[in-house]
Design a binder for these strands. Structure first.
Length: 474
RNA sequence: GGCGCCAUCGUCUAAUUGGUUAGGACGCUGCCCUCUCAAGGCAGAGCUUACGGGUUCGAGUCCCGUUGGCGCCA
């Protein structure tokens, strides 16, 4: 039998780190099993669902490279089907109309709470006669449909990640499956859709464990075959609370904007709650798919660590990305910061970006590091830079370097290194005495790429002009 | 409040399914390289496996309890 799994987000906001991880595990399982991955948008909550969110989620899925065979389906399109299923359960005697008003339910709940009893529905409308229903209808009451839960017995789940779990049926009440507005309730819509789509494995966050017994009872009431369940642990923020907006960047979009790579994010996400026996850290997508299995998933929640994500992203930039790919991505970020435009020399841009390959961990770090390559006037970045220029002899040293570089024939990395080292020797300067001020003079800062690489890329014209300018300002 | 899930270095995790000194990765510290910052290389600190019992020749691993965190239902 073909494996069929689905990712079913609610379109109430951007795709979340947690959601992306759930999607990833479903996707990996489908790919590993040569199964089908389905996307379903759970937009039953009409008040909070938006089309923008749906579009945003789809875009994020595509950006990450998680493709789907079927969908995206909208749960709201199946409303009529859900209503039909609800009536079917009523006909079968597995569900019934309930006319209790929200106020009545609230009063009763409070009474139960006061007596320290669990606040569950008392089954008042379980067996209404036709006449009683007629009276309620005439009063203008709109009924909900409630599912008739068994009063005894246990419901067992054999969870693929968590192992066996048991629930006592008597603790569950007759829950609403269809609201008076005709809108199906989450637990009901999920079961109907999962059945209709022939889902074989329900892989979702473990915050849904408690919903599972209700859903299983629905499958049984219909006489439908049960899917397998796999509840994967949640992702938490640094404070141990469920990851949310409060924790800063929890939306995938923010990582896209900061210049993270999709492969690096996928790699980081798979490491949250899954590992191979040899604790391998870096996986290509193919490797991930090959090696993934649900029985190696962790059971405990994981805290999201932005530092490790950053490290992995750096690894991907340095070792997985081709130099031209980095240049392509870098150009977008530099253009967004208005450091370059169409008129900027492409070869120059490309050389500048390549210089920083070893230093950046996200592409977003690039503009700040290389802005001096593109600015006409450079300014001193900090006190350290000012101090470097304030040292004795700096004016004289820089003047000599300027004279030398203005006419030296070979402006290559090797040529520059030779010329400048020679200058140090001739005047018996320590190398640092010369290198540091030159660096500050051309870049305005004390850190950056190798000095000669930097000079070679900048070119004679810029280098000489900048040093001259600095000498004049001292 | 009821029910459920979970518990190994600060963080993510591994441990031949009960058998060496509890391994790796991020982060941290130091050293090497070096014109700086990175990168890279090497080394180090860090877990009495939440706590307490039990089973066993032997427990991170199995059982019971406690505590704590998280989740679901109101």
């Amino acid at each position: 039998m073909t494996v069929r799994v689905r990712f079913a987000p609610s379109p109430t906001g951007y795709l979340h780190i947690g959601g992306a991880r759930t999607a990833l595990f479903n996707w990996l399982f489908a790919r590993n099993q040569k199964g089908v991955f389905i996307l379903r948008i759970e937009d039953t909550d009409e008040a909070r669902s938006t089309e923008e969110s749906t579009a945003q989620i789809l875009r994020s899925m595509e950006w990450l490279g998680m493709n789907w065979e079927e969908g995206p389906f909208l749960q709201s399109d199946h409303k009529a089907k859900h209503q039909q299923y609800a009536s079917q359960l009523v006909e079968m005697g597995q569900a019934y109309y309930c006319y209790c008003s929200p106020e009545e339910l609230e009063t009763r709940r409070k009474e139960m709470m006061a007596k320290k009893l669990p606040p569950k529905y008392n089954g008042q409308c379980r067996s209404l006669s036709a006449e009683q229903r007629k009276i309620f209808e005439q009063e203008g009451r709109k009924p909900v449909i409630r599912f008739r839960m068994p009063d005894s017995g246990v419901t067992k789940i054999n969870d693929l990640v968590k192992g066996p779990i048991q629930f006592d049926n008597s603790l569950l009440d007759d829950f609403v499956i269809l609201k008076s507005s005709g809108v199906p309730v989450y637990n009901f819509a999920v079961v109907c859709d999962d059945h209709d789509m022939n889902i074989t494995h329900v892989i979702r966050g473990d915050d849904h464990i408690s919903n599972t017994p209700r859903q299983i009872m629905l499958y049984k009431a219909f006489g439908w075959e049960l899917p397998e369940f796999a509840h994967i642990p949640m992702i938490l923020g640094p404070d141990g609370a469920r990851l949310s907006k409060r924790h800063g960047a929890a939306a995938l979009d923010e990582y896209i904007q900061q210049g993270y790579l999709p492969e690096a994010i996928m790699n980081y996400l798979v490491l949250l709650g899954w590992a191979t026996e040899d604790s391998q850290q870096i996986f290509s997508l193919t490797e991930m798919i090959e090696k993934f299995s649900l029985d190696r998933c962790a059971k405990n929640a994981a805290i999201f660590d932005p530092e490790k994500l950053k490290w992995l992203n750096g690894e991907y930039i340095r070792h997985k990305l081709r130099p031209e790919e980095l240049v392509q991505l870098g150009i977008k970020f530099l253009a967004a910061k208005k450091l370059i435009d169409e008129s900027t020399d492409l070869e120059y841009i490309s050389q500048v970006i390549s210089l920083e390959r070893e230093r950046i961990r996200t592409i977003g770090e690039l503009p700040e590091l290389v802005d001096f390559f593109f600015k006409e006037k450079i300014e001193l970045a900090d006190d350290k830079a000012r101090k470097t220029l304030a040292k004795p002899n700096v004016k004289e040293i820089l003047a000599k370097v300027e004279t030398e570089l203005s006419h030296t024939p070979d402006f290559s990395v090797a040529g520059l290194e030779q010329v400048i080292r020679q200058l140090c020797e001739t005047n018996s300067y320590k190398t640092g005495e010369v290198f540091h001020p030159v660096r500050v003079a051309v870049s305005g800062r004390t850190t950056g790429p190798g000095l000669f690489e930097m000079l070679a890329v900048l070119g004679r014209e810029r280098v000489v002009a900048r040093i001259k300018q600095t000498v004049e300002n001292i």
